[in-house]
Each structure stands twice: as structure tokens, then as C-alpha cells.
């Protein structure tokens, strides 16, 4: 099942609710870039509150999504990363450096406002 992408003004909001397999992750990457292109969105919030595992593959896809969106002119903020997920990521050796994060969706939107200066 594809991950739904909602549009709110100039922003795209995504809340990942399902177990992400590799195919879903890659499909999401394509869908999001396509949606940024079509809507001209300038900011994206990806909420990971319901995600209880991020392995190196999913981390790579997320990192790539952020860089690719950036190239297209959209800032991405990741929100709601669970403590257990943050710890396992660091132990895997994955630091997701330079990726803006926030505690929850609301804080993510505030961060986008700040970063985009609107």
C-alpha cells in the first residue's frame, strides 16, 4: 500500500503508519519527488512516530529523500523518531547528519517556517 502524502498550503505532510518494506520505501521516494514537482511544495514533514524500526536500507532511502527534495527546492524535516529507533540508528553507525528533525509534527511545521523564513 502506498504511503499517503497530504498537501497543506505549500507543505507536504506524510505520516508513515505502516511497516515499511523496501518496495514501499522506494515507491514513496518516487511519489514524494513527483508530488514536490507537481505542487511546487517548499517544505515537507515526514512523521515517523509510528515507525518502530529503521534499518540501514530505510535510513538510506530517507537520507536520499532529504537530499533529493533539497535539490528540488523543498526542505524536509523528520519528526517523531522514537527513542529506541534513534539509539539503534546510532549503534548501526548511521547519524543522519544535516537532516533537520523535530519532536512532533507541530514542531516540524514550526521548524519549516523558521528555515524557510515565512
Amino acid at each position: 500500500m502506498p504511503i499517503p502524502i497530504l498537501k497543506l498550503h505549500n507543505y507536504l505532510l506524510i505520516s508513515i503508519q505502516t511497516e515499511i518494506d523496501d518496495q514501499t520505501a522506494i515507491q514513496f521516494q518516487e511519489d514524494l519527488l513527483d508530488k514536490i514537482h507537481k505542487t511546487g511544495a517548499t517544505g515537507v514533514v515526514i512523521d515517523l512516530t509510528s515507525v518502530d524500526i529503521i534499518d540501514s536500507f530505510i535510513a538510506k532511502v530517507l537520507g536520499d529523500v532529504v537530499s533529493m527534495s533539497d535539490l528540488m527546492g523543498a526542505k524536509v524535516v523528520l519528526t517523531g523518531i522514537q527513542p529506541a529507533v534513534a539509539m539503534t540508528l546510532i549503534e548501526l553507525g548511521i547519524h543522519l547528519q544535516n537532516i533537520p528533525t523535530a519532536l512532533d509534527l507541530e514542531q516540524g511545521l514550526i521548524k519549516l517556517h523558521q528555515e524557510l523564513g515565512v
Binding site: 518502530d52 524500526i53 529507533v85 539503534t88
Partner: peptide, 13 residues
């Protein structure tokens, strides 16, 4: 919960 995540992540890898 953290160890559950560690184990699930290791198995995924």
C-alpha cells in the same frame, strides 16, 4: 523496547 528494536533491526540487516 530498546533491545526489541536492536534485535529486530539486526534481523532486518
Amino acid at each position: 523496547v530498546v533491545d526489541q528494536a536492536r534485535i529486530a533491526t539486526a534481523v532486518s540487516e
